[in-house]
């Protein structure tokens, strides 16, 4: 058991390192990147990876490595912030509903139902058609349409936990509702929340790319991994590197976030 724990601790360190490195890259992109992200040079378009252009150049001759670095700022901002926002919102609502029950539960769940009932991508497509997409707006919109699943799952866990002895016991001991909620319920639903959150990171990044697919994502010439992938769709056969590197970036991020969440989601066995 202890060997496994050690190994998972190593993994964790590695995963958190990767997350931090990605965030660092995003923050430092303008300093680290070898070129300007919008340095169009039509004479140099669609060059394969080389010593000068590590990840090759795109349809407009821009350096793909630079754009992946700059894309990290947008994609991570959307991925991490929107995921954090939506999961926090969902957890709060789910916990309160499941714990308090009664009219509050009914009200919150109907709200969740109403939000869930309207299909997410169509709703986002309509919203972005009404409001001009900017990065902060995309973060807010993606979290506004993304908290409901978390809230339902958390609520059903809370409901299930609420019927178990130890929380009733805690209440019987005269602990305050808030205290029970925060100290006893929250740790118990945490594994589920963590999975929700790690899934939400990838999902938020992908929602942005789906919006790019319909042309309402991050506006050019700004780069996001999602719109880079979208732009690469027509050159999948001829210039695979255009799709490969942003795709790998999304994969690495999702992987790191999931691995980092792994340890937190492993319940403590007493």
């Amino acid at each position: 058991m202890s060997a496994a724990n050690e190994q998972s601790a190593t993994n964790m360190r590695w995963a958190w390192g990767l997350v931090l490195a990605l965030v660092g890259v995003a923050i430092l992109a303008p300093l680290v990147a070898p070129f300007a992200p919008d340095a169009v040079d039509l004479a140099l378009r669609r060059q394969g990876p080389s010593a000068l252009h590590w990840f090759g150049t795109d349809d407009l001759g821009r350096d793909v490595f630079t754009r992946v670095l700059h894309g990290a700022r947008v994609s991570l901002a959307i991925g991490l912030l929107a995921a954090a926002l939506s999961v926090a919102l969902g957890t709060a609502i789910g916990l309160v509903a499941g714990f308090i029950g009664g009219a509050v539960d009914t009200g919150l769940m109907r709200l969740t139902d109403a939000m869930l009932a309207v299909p997410r991508l169509p709703l986002l497509m309509i919203l972005t058609a009404i409001l001009q997409p900017s990065i902060p707006l995309l973060i807010i919109l993606v979290s506004v349409v993304g908290w409901m699943e978390t809230s339902r799952v958390v609520r059903s866990e809370a409901l299930s936990l609420g019927r178990r002895g130890f929380i009733e016991a805690a209440q019987a001991l005269g602990l305050s509702r808030t205290r029970v909620l925060v100290r006893h319920m929250l740790p118990n639903v945490l594994p589920t929340v963590i999975v929700s959150a790690t899934l939400a990171v990838g999902r938020s990044i992908l929602l942005e790319s789906a919006l790019s697919f319909f042309g309402v994502g991050v506006q050019p010439p700004a780069a996001s991994w999602g719109n880079m992938l979208y732009q690469a769709q027509s050159t999948m056969t001829s210039e695979p590197w255009l799709a490969l590197f942003p795709g790998l970036a999304i994969f690495l991020t999702t992987l790191a976030v999931n691995a980092a969440g792994e340890r937190l989601s492993t319940p403590a066995v007493s």
Partner: peptide, 14 residues
């Protein structure tokens, strides 16, 4: 939106 060529041309013009 949705016209790859227009997106490219507009960025070149920009």
């Amino acid at each position: 939106a949705g016209f790859a060529i227009r997106e490219s041309v507009s960025q070149a013009v920009q």
